[in-house]
């Protein structure tokens, strides 16, 4: 039947128009959402605290895939820049190519990170507002500045790496700067998620940084393994760096797991569902990658395998943590139990 939008009102839609900034909102089609199906109708089981019809108490993080991917990229470039800095300081001319490669990873990674982050924004055209203020209480603000600084310096350092004289000196200075910023860059994303109300992230805020940084080392090494250098010394450096990283990463994963056993509901997503599967996968892949790394006979194929497995592991880890966090934010009891300490 005719009528405004066929909604049966038969009134001039103009009359019903909402005005003002809030009015333009589009609300997702709710017809599909049959809330009543997952509304709690029974009383909470004995021992269980009450909830409001099992509805979430928190808002689920709105971030999309590009954010965990960035966690990986940022970590990788951070670790790479650090390694580059170390090589530049103590490696001598022999490791110069490694230094250059690290700077390029930093530069390219920086660009990629920016793209990934802007893609996640609700208002991409306003990405530059990220550098509108510096807010120490906001890891995201701190991180934005770190990322901006690191990638600019890395870019400059990379471009000046092959110059001579003064320019080269400037490049090395930039390289060191980038290396210094690389340190926080490799791990601040863990602080960023830890600094939220999301139960799982909040619970693991002290172990996540180690996990992320270790995984960043492994990730960076794995990344290099994908295009192994010819020089044996360079190989040794990367290999050692990666091996240590992966060992520590595995240790950190165990630490995280033990930490979330404190409150059953909080840790649940690391054991169950998609996030749980990703978590186990990350572990398996890292173990395998580590194995391939410390294999006595290092064939090119082994290195490649280590690289692939390590990269996949590092990515899986970020996604696992990401989705586990989201899942825990959907579970009101995770929040309630955590705050009640039960």
């Amino acid at each position: 039947m005719s009528g405004s939008g066929g909604d049966g009102r038969y009134v001039d839609p103009e009359l019903g128009l909402l005005l003002g900034e809030a009015a333009s909102q589009r609300i997702e089609a709710t017809s599909a959402r049959e809330v009543w199906r997952d509304v709690a109708t029974s009383l909470p089981a004995p021992g269980e605290g009450p909830t409001y019809y099992d509805r979430p108490v928190l808002k689920e993080p709105v971030w999309i895939w590009s954010v965990p991917v960035y966690f990986w990229v940022g970590g990788t470039m951070g670790a790479a820049l650090t390694l580059g800095g170390a090589a530049q300081l103590a490696g001598g001319p022999e490791l110069r190519p490694l230094v250059r490669r690290c700077r390029w990873v930093g530069a390219v990674g920086g660009a990629a990170s920016a793209a990934l982050l802007v893609h996640d924004l609700g208002r991409p055209e306003r990405f530059h507002h990220m550098l509108r203020v510096f807010r120490p209480t906001s890891p995201m603000s701190v991180g934005s500045w770190v990322l901006a600084g690191a990638s600019t310096l890395a870019g400059a350092a990379a471009l000046l790496a092959s110059r001579r004289g003064l320019l080269r000196g400037a490049g090395d200075l930039a390289g060191l700067g980038a290396a210094l910023l690389g340190l926080p860059l490799a791990g601040y994303t863990a602080v960023l998620v830890g600094n939220t109300a999301v139960p799982l992230w909040l619970e693991t805020r002290r172990t996540l940084p180690l996990l992320f940084i270790a995984s960043a080392m492994g990730g960076a090494a794995s990344f290099f393994d994908l295009a192994p250098a010819s020089r044996p010394r360079e190989k040794r450096v990367v290999r050692a760096f990666g091996a240590v990283g992966k060992v520590v990463e595995l240790a950190a994963m165990v630490a995280v797991e033990r930490q979330v056993t404190r409150i059953e509901r909080v840790g649940r997503p690391l054991r169950e569902g998609v996030s749980g599967a990703l978590w186990s996968a990350a572990k398996a892949l890292t173990v395998a990658s580590l194995g391939a790394t410390i294999l006595p006979r290092r064939t090119r194929r082994a290195a490649l395998a280590a690289g692939l497995l390590g990269t996949a592991g590092a990515l899986a880890l970020r996604f696992a943590v990401f989705h586990a966090g989201k899942a825990s934010s959907r579970d009101p009891r995770a929040t309630f139990d955590q705050q009640r300490g039960r």
């Binding site: 300081l89 209480t137 340190l183 490799a186 600094n195 940084i213």
Partner: peptide, 27 residues
């Protein structure tokens, strides 16, 4: 509660720096 997280990160960061240097020197 952020302080704890930042602290943990700082420690880890020092660690990574040390490992990096170590790897280089050891090689």
């Amino acid at each position: 509660r952020a302080a704890g997280a930042w602290g943990a990160m700082a420690a880890a960061a020092l660690g990574i720096a040390a490992v990096a240097l170590g790897a280089v020197l050891a090689s």
